[in-house]
Nucleic acid binder design. Structure first.
Lengths: 127, 127
DNA sequence: CGGACATCCGTACGGTCGTACGGATGTATG
DNA sequence: CATACATCCGTACGACCGTACGGATGTCCG
């Protein structure tokens, strides 16, 4: 009985993938980061803040046509993650992108991925 | 009664955010795209396939120490989205990154975001 | 042709996430 | 000090996603 396929079909590649692949920990961390961007409300908020520097919760809800609850909840997560900073002026809280964090990289990702997602949806339409 | 804050606190910025902001449709499309990357199994699979060109389901499960069910399910989603291609050889199905699709960009995002997520977790540890 | 095998598929379950609602906090106005 | 207001928070509900299990499909071997 000649086994055409043993347990590892390609042991060499399996070994390489094990060695240089992403660890489960890193992958989990990366996933939580990407999860924060995988929400329409949050991406629109980040994009809007990138455009106009700073906005308060109510204006943000107005500009994006979402409920204030929704905006507040999204901002809470973004704030906890360190993506946005706050500035109080009276009873109003203004949000802006955090200085220390991913502005340039995430902007590139956002901008490029938007056009990419458009291309992807067009290809789906064709097929 | 002088209103300190009317409904739009900063009408100019609200208008700009409305005009140039991301539409709800684009944001939804972008979110579905990012959702595909927001899973540890899927990112590790994409990364592994980028490393070693192609792998079959069983070897992939072996290399990443996950169940074959998990690998198969992840590959199904990636295949539906057009991220990976398949090649049959006998009873074995080999998967590789799709030619027509986001290899360069997603690789950059993946690589850079991995180190970024490490930095982020270190900052969390400090605080 | 029959058994073994790699992979896929349908279903059901548990956990997680976003939303909506009510109330709480703190601030400015008169 | 009392009212109005912007925002936050805790809770509960509904929807979606990933996993696990059983079975189906197609392929190779003898």
């Amino acid at each position: 009985m000649v086994l055409q396929h043993a347990h590892p079909v390609d042991p060499d590649r399996v070994a390489r993938a094990q060695e240089r692949g992403i660890s489960a920990d890193d992958a989990t961390r990366l996933s939580s980061l990407l999860s924060l961007l995988s929400d329409p409300v949050r991406t629109r908020i980040l994009y809007a803040l990138d455009l106009v520097e700073e906005l308060c919760v109510g204006d943000l809800a107005l500009a994006l046509d979402i409920s204030e609850d929704s905006a507040s909840y999204a901002l809470r997560l973004l704030r906890t993650a360190g993506f946005v900073q706050t500035r109080r002026q009276g009873r109003v809280v203004f949000y802006r992108l955090a200085d220390r964090f991913p502005e340039p990289l995430l902007e590139h990702c956002l901008r490029e991925l938007i056009s990419l997602s458009r291309v992807a949806s067009e290809e789906e339409d064709q097929s």
